[in-house]
Design a protein around this nucleic acid. Structure first.
Length: 431
RNA sequence: GUGAGCGUAGCUCAGGGGUUAGAGCACUGGACUGUGGCUCCAGGGGUCGAGGGUUCGAAUCCCUCCGUUCACCCCA
């Protein structure tokens, strides 16, 4: 083997998903789609890029995402476009642009796809990563929140994520958040000196963020600070209490985390995170919250909404390792010589058209080598076609799992294999 | 953007100034002339991340760059 140095490498933080891994992805996608559908969600596909201003207005100009993480570029001329860093703003854009709000009250949609943020890669953090997200627009009742959290907990249980925890908080709305911020900044006023440098900046720009600072000194100060929950207005208080009642009714475990703040500007009332403590620093496998003001701020009619996003890479990291598939399916035609190869090629074509997995060697390997290949790739049957078989008008059909073989007349071979394989599938499908 | 760790075979890693750089797995072939798995034997495969420096001599020590990993920050 000669050493080959690739001339062009992939982009940092944008990993390839190789064939050996892709099965896990597909399983998650299929399962998730099924569950989303059962909960009444329909898929929506928006472009991976949008006008930059959509994200600036939607996510908030002061957020880290907009300030330093967007992949923005000029579109031949003057328009600034951006690779989407998240999915909510594009969905709302499409919702308004196509007037989906006229089709009934509650609009439930989901998306699956890549997102892009320019950050330093780390365990569970990439520059191109994948989210499965959903938005429920048009109804502000806490039942919608509860249903969404139920969906996620059902999904994680189904996929076999173990050890996840649901953290829940309410950060108020435009009636009570200013009240809280006022109390909070007044409390902090005398303590600026004891805050970490980051938090001193946060105090001016986004005081809520001080709540989840990890620096010990700040945590001590925060511990005695007024909690957002204590400042909730009547409506927000009722909403949060009702949500908790419903979660208890649905038997969904959660814990209220007053320090749960999220980095996007648009959240109101409910915020939540599904965390896997086993993951390392980036341990949120899903997060989201309610955004009752966002649609209005983006120029639409006042419309409550709530959404979540799952980090697919992090979800995959949370799933149990699975061994290689022990499923033996399909047919490998092992041929010797030109005439046998051409016969094998026709048989393989026929089998494929009958819907079977079938292949043959094109490298001129020895029979032993072809058998090894058939075994390595888990073909159920090997069809041996050599001089002896051609002379007798038969094929040697070997069952690789059982280790037994028999000679079958050529005209019956395809029929036999199709019958055996469909029976095998029926058995495999029973478990 | 900041900090730390690590770059030796396709993969996981030994070797830490002294001939020609190693192991396991994987790969190819043989034992078994046309039969997979198990076993044994053999073989191919390396700019020791790149460039510069120190030295009689560098995979090994020093510097720079690149890559990568983890953490801060932030989020999924």
């Amino acid at each position: 083997m000669r050493k080959v140095r690739p001339v062009i490498r992939g982009v940092r933080g944008a990993p390839d998903i190789l064939p050996a891994q892709v099965g896990r992805w597909q399983r998650v996608e299929v399962e998730t789609r099924r569950i989303l559908k059962n909960y009444g969600y329909q898929e929506i596909r928006t472009p991976v890029f949008e006008r930059t201003e959509l994200f600036v207005r939607g996510i908030g100009g002061g957020t880290d995402i907009v300030e330093k993480q967007m992949y923005s570029f000029e579109d031949r001329g003057h328009e600034s476009l951006t690779l989407r860093p998240e999915g909510t703003a594009p969905v709302i854009r499409a919702y308004l642009e196509h007037r989906l709000f006229t089709k009934g009250d509650l609009c439930k949609v989901y998306y699956i796809g890549p997102m892009f943020r320019h950050e330093r890669p780390q365990a569970g953090r990439f520059r191109q990563f994948h989210q499965i997200g959903a938005e429920a627009l048009g109804v502000g009742d806490p039942a919608v929140d509860a249903e969404m959290l139920d969906l996620l907990s059902h999904l994680f249980a189904t996929l076999g994520v173990d050890g996840w925890q649901l953290h829940l908080n309410s950060i108020g709305d435009d009636a009570c958040r200013p009240v809280f911020l006022d109390r909070f900044t007044r409390y902090m006023a005398g303590k600026v000196e004891r805050l970490c440098p980051d938090c001193r900046v946060r105090l001016k720009r986004n005081p809520l963020r001080i709540l989840d600072c990890k620096v010990e000194g700040c945590r001590r100060i925060v511990a005695r600070a007024p909690s957002p929950l204590e400042s909730l207005c009547e409506d927000c208080e009722v909403h949060f209490r009702r949500l908790q009642e419903l979660l208890q009714l649905l038997k969904i475990d959660y814990s209220v985390n007053e320090r749960l703040v999220r980095g996007l500007d648009y959240y109101t009332r409910t915020t939540f995170e599904f965390v896997n403590p086993g993951l390392g620093a980036q341990n949120a496998i899903a997060g989201g919250g309610r955004y009752d003001l966002l649609v209005g701020e983006m120029g639409g009619p006042p419309t409550p909404g709530i959404g979540f996003a799952i980090g697919v890479e992090r979800l995959l990291l949370s799933l149990p390792r699975e061994g290689p598939s022990e499923e033996w399916v399909g047919v490998f035609a092992a041929t010797l010589g030109k005439e046998a190869f051409e016969l094998g090629l026709r048989i393989v074509q026929d089998l494929r058209r009958q819907g079977l997995r079938a292949t043959l060697d094109m490298e001129g390997r020895s029979l032993k080598s072809q058998m090894r290949l058939a075994h390595k790739e888990r073909y159920r049957y090997t069809l041996i076609l050599g001089d002896e078989e051609l002379k007798a008008g038969v094929a040697t059909m070997k069952d690789m799992a059982q280790g037994v073989q028999e000679r079958v007349p050529l005209q019956e071979v395809v029929h036999r294999l199709v019958r055996h394989e469909s029976r095998g599938k029926a058995q495999a499908g029973r478990d």
